[in-house]
Design a binder for these strands. Structure first.
Lengths: 141, 141
DNA sequence: TAAATACGTAACTATAACGGTTACATATTG
DNA sequence: CAATATGTAACCGTTATAGTTACGTATTTA
């Protein structure tokens, strides 16, 4: 369980919701597709709501709806919504400041890591939930 | 401790070794710069050796040496050597195959994630350990 | 207005990865 | 043979995660 599966599940959820954008979808139903517990789904939907991507309604005929068109939600948006940290992590303990490399390596790596992360993020910003729906549709024919 | 710091430490180690490519460097000394235990350093160096980037010699006047010039080691090489997994992780449990989305989402996401990861990896392949040494040098002036 | 429904979230648990540490065997040098 | 340095197993505390139960709150509808 090294890396969270939240991002993957979030994309699964949104793709599922986008296949029927008009009717509210219930966490219990989504959990059936993802094959997990409804609470896990609601936790992730909570983050998506905080990011303004979905909204919820309690009670009978309640459930979840997209706030934006599936074609306006990029995979980068969803990644930000999950607040997944950087795929890179700095040292546990601060390096030795008495060593030239130790004193400057984190600044240098911060720069390099930021650049690499941006390359990944930019790539993700070029795909949308609507594209995932289409890919699933293509795969099922 | 969400993501491993191995990659960061590996880059630190190689940058340090590259500042004096000629003499063997001892894990104890490296640990002093990284500010951790020598065993942690040796574990990471072991992975770098498996990847053919460094070699070791036990005993008096022993230690570690680069196998290649610092300008021939890219940050992508080091990432591969650490065997860091993908920054993306699929579902814990297999999704419901009775659902169209559940049946196809992993294949679709595998494709999308692979593309994003490649963007990051390509970016990392354009920097070398020699460049890190230079950046540290620049920062210390 | 009462029953049914569905979200919201706290609390607890098992699992796994990680970093740190000790200990000791092995290899090399001089 | 003594000193040194790697190689690696074993163990521990910390942390994140996913799963689960439980229960309060909001909303609909009969």
């Amino acid at each position: 369980m090294n890396v969270s599966t939240r991002y993957t599940v979030a994309l699964h959820i949104l793709t599922l919701m986008a296949t029927d954008e008009t009717h509210p979808m219930v966490s219990e139903f989504i959990a059936g597709s993802v094959n997990t517990n409804p609470v896990v789904i609601r936790r992730i939907l909570g983050r998506l709501r905080t990011a303004g991507l979905v909204k919820s309604h309690p009670g009978v005929n309640g459930g979840w709806l997209l706030c934006k068109s599936a074609s306006d939600i990029t995979l980068a948006d969803v990644r930000l919504a999950m607040e997944e940290g950087s795929p890179f992590t700095m040292h546990t303990n601060a390096p030795n400041p008495a060593c030239t490399v130790g004193r400057h390596i984190q600044g240098v790596l911060g720069h390099v890591f930021g650049h690499a992360e941006r390359a990944m993020h930019d790539d993700l910003s070029r795909s949308t939930i609507a594209a995932l729906v289409q890919s699933v549709k293509d795969a099922s024919r």
